[in-house]
Design a protein around this nucleic acid. Sequence first.
DNA 1: TATCTATATTGACGAATATCGATATACAAT
DNA 2: ATTGTATATCGATATTCGTCAATATAGATA
Lengths: 115, 115
Amino acid sequence: MVGVKKEIALEDISVRSTVNRTAPIDRVDAESMALILKAVADPARLQLLSILKYAPNQEACVCDLTAPLGLSQPTVSHHLKVLADAGLLTRERRGSWAWFSLVPLRLNELRSFLE
Amino acid sequence: MVGVKKEIALEDISVRSTVNRTAPIDRVDAESMALILKAVADPARLQLLSILKYAPNQEACVCDLTAPLGLSQPTVSHHLKVLADAGLLTRERRGSWAWFSLVPLRLNELRSFLE
DNA sequence: TATCTATATTGACGAATATCGATATACAAT
DNA sequence: ATTGTATATCGATATTCGTCAATATAGATA
């Protein structure tokens, strides 16, 4: 498994985590939630989410995001991919640009998990 | 700075993160929030928080936590320290035992940050 | 005191992560 | 086709993280 990138299977989280709990989560559910939380638990990625939230149409392209973060273009691209893989952003190509948007439903899952 | 353990300064987060935002968070605030999110973004620590939530009095000692997690005692102790350093748990000694409790206020900060 | 038990700390290890420069790819426009 | 721009991927590196075995510490009890 060396060098194999882990992608998040969205179904793993979406269904089980939103159930009203009556008992502690098991390891499987905990690992699913940890995946989405890890995606958010980074200062650069928190800034990206926050910038998108306050952006017109809640969307932006990579070129608008490198400057406010003070990070290189590859690094910003990497963080956007992590967020997209976690289902928190969607990516849409328009000409040369890649536009990223928030996925409110996914963010709600995060919120509702924390009750 | 090699080998120096980072501890979270609770004041850094508690004040600024609960303010109603009108603009994207800056790097400093993002780093503060990332600290508490990192503490939560681990399957073992999510299980610990969840177990405590459903425990009588929302508290438990280390000896009750190693078995359900399937991890060694030092590892569980480590995770509890991470959560306590993030202000999410309090530790109280009673005789030989160390009892850990949830800090609801701190968990609310986490929730309210995600709006 | 000595001993037992519960918890914390240390030291080490492999795995994962954040970052960048260099490069590849995709698309647009000449 | 060529050139230019925007984005993605690759390769490397330094750092952080999760885990355990071994050990240390704290407190209870004999």
